[in-house]
Design a protein around this nucleic acid. Structure first.
Length: 314
DNA sequence: CGTATTTGACCGGCGC
DNA sequence: GCGCCGGTCAAATACG
């Protein structure tokens, strides 16, 4: 079943070997895979290579890391879990029938391509919505969908060992749906970024084989800075322990949103990446690739946040 | 009262 | 064509 799904997809997913081992041994990989495949056909996801652990090109591996995270509740009441950790997995996700601008290269450039695709949708959709503020009937929606086939945006999924479903990631989300998931006793929640012009979505569910694992999938890229980052005083009212965790997790997405990756990142920024900031991560990657000449093969964020031994040797 | 969440209905894609 | 399923909508409801 899982492998059957895997065979339907193909793409690029990367990881450092060490983390991959952790994921694999921890039994998390399958959860991520199932989650992100999510019954959607025709996607391209490279986890089959990871499952096989055989044909993995070191140069194609990136973006799977293990990092700490904080549950949303950690910002006010004490977190239910003393040491929640996140197992993060980055993946490119395309629906083969919906790719408008295939990546020029199979690895790094796929992200920038996907990003532009996401931007296109973000820019066009609001205009359509304002076309008729009140008379947005179902017929109109239907016609809209008919004329413009829904585009699938790149996705990023990661797993967090936490009792809290909705993890704080520095952005504000509005829940717009919840559905029972087949083969899982836990519902899947659907969230949308509350920022008007931002079309980023995320899905949150628990791994069917391990209820303690929360699987979060981001879709799209934020077009705005993180609200948390734009409120720097926020951490001043927070307990020290939370401050540390918060700054660790969220400093990067805000930086990424405010300045280009090439300027905002440096090898001296060891605390720049947040596990629950997967969307921020995507954003970071976008800036990275938009930086034109800066290739992702330099690991992007990973080189700054992941111990060097976890990065591939070249 | 404004905002966020809940939840049943609806829609489209897909397999049979 | 029909049913299943994932995803989304939107009215109702809850909350601060």
């Amino acid at each position: 079943m899982e492998m059957k799904q895997a065979m339907k997809i193909g793409g690029t997913v990367g990881s450092s070997f060490s983390f991959l081992d952790q994921v694999h041994q921890g039994g998390y990989l399958q959860s991520v895979f199932d989650m992100c495949e999510g019954g959607e056909k025709g996607g391209s996801l490279g986890f089959m290579e990871l499952l096989g652990m055989q044909d993995i090109e070191p140069s194609s591996l990136f973006d799977m890391i293990q990092v700490p995270c904080i549950p949303q509740e950690a910002l006010s009441p004490p977190p239910p879990l003393p040491n929640p950790t996140t197992v993060a997995a980055k993946m490119e996700y395309y629906s083969s029938s919906e790719i408008l601008n295939p990546p020029a290269t199979p690895n790094s450039s796929s992200i920038s391509s996907a990003s532009s695709e996401a931007l296109n949708e973000e820019q066009t959709k609001p205009a359509v919505d304002e076309e008729d503020g009140q008379q947005k009937t179902k017929k109109q929606l239907k016609a809209k969908k008919a004329n413009q086939k829904r585009q699938r945006e790149p996705r990023f999924a990661f797993m967090t060992k936490s009792e809290v479903d909705h993890l704080e990631d520095g952005y504000r989300w509005r829940k717009y749906g919840q559905k029972a998931v087949k083969n899982s006793s836990f519902p899947r929640s659907y969230y949308r970024c509350t920022t008007a012009s931002c079309n980023v979505k995320k899905r949150v569910e628990r791994a069917f084989n391990d209820p303690t694992i929360v699987v979060t999938t981001y879709e799209g890229q934020h077009t705005h800075p993180s609200p948390v980052m734009s409120r720097p005083n926020l951490v001043t009212n927070t307990p020290d322990s939370v401050i540390a965790a918060t700054t660790t997790n969220f400093s990067m997405p805000m930086q990424s949103a405010q300045q280009p990756y090439v300027n905002g990142l440096s090898s001296t920024n060891p605390l720049s990446f947040g596990s629950t900031s997967a969307a921020g991560f995507l954003q970071e990657r976008r800036f990275c690739t938009q930086g034109a000449s800066l290739l992702l093969k330099d690991y992007g964020l990973l080189q700054d946040i992941v111990p060097s031994h976890m990065l591939k040797e070249e």
